[in-house]
């Protein structure tokens, strides 16, 4: 099943949930974040879709004052088709429903994206940092990230443009 068919199935079930975006390519679709959990449940359970595998969650900072994005690569082991779902989130208050209980791996992927971008996954039962230490400040992969100066009394080295390491 290709992207447009999947798109029409979603449109049919959840009207006005899809966001039209001309920059989308391949098998990407963009949806409105508020429908996400229902759509995710639908994508997983609908007999025509059966997306049983969540391959990857990627957080992306579109830069400047653009939104943060949470991207989900889904794949169906059963039907062997795939889709990429994009959800744009407000930069100041990025939050989206958690799909941790739908695909179990969502647990760690969401924790990782939270760790790196500060995207809050609502309904996640254990949303903690996963790769950085628990008391790390800031969201490292955001474009406007600024390093903290010291961490537990240790100087955090900074990269300076063209000069290399300080």
């Amino acid at each position: 099943m290709n992207r447009s068919e999947i798109q029409s199935l979603i449109e049919e079930k959840f009207p006005n949930s899809l966001i039209v975006n001309e920059n989308l390519q391949g098998n990407q679709i963009e949806i409105d974040g508020q429908f996400w959990k229902d759509i995710a449940t639908f994508l997983k359970n609908d007999p025509k879709l059966l997306f049983d595998q969540l391959e990857c969650i990627t957080g992306i900072d579109t830069g400047d004052d653009g939104p943060l994005q949470s991207r989900y690569n889904l794949h169906s082991m059963e039907l062997r088709h795939k889709i990429e779902v994009i959800i744009s989130l407000d930069r100041d208050n990025p939050s989206v429903e958690s799909i941790e209980q739908i695909w179990r791996i969502g647990d760690w992927f969401e924790r990782e994206t939270y760790d790196m971008f500060g995207i809050v996954y609502e309904g996640h039962r254990d949303l903690r940092r996963i790769l950085c230490p628990d008391d790390w400040e800031g969201w490292p992969l955001r474009k406007d990230y600024e390093l903290q100066e010291t961490y537990h009394g240790i100087m955090v080295p900074k990269v300076k443009e063209e000069e290399g390491w300080e």
Binding site: E55, T58, I105
Partner: peptide, 29 residues
């Protein structure tokens, strides 16, 4: 499955490179 998510904005530097690590998912179970 070792996945790479690469986002490009047309410059020689990637906007985002994400590695979907198979061992990461294996450990989660």
């Amino acid at each position: 499955d070792l996945g790479y998510y690469i986002e490009s904005d047309g410059s020689p530097v990637p906007t985002r490179v994400k590695m979907r690590s198979p061992a990461f998912t294996a450990l989660s179970c």
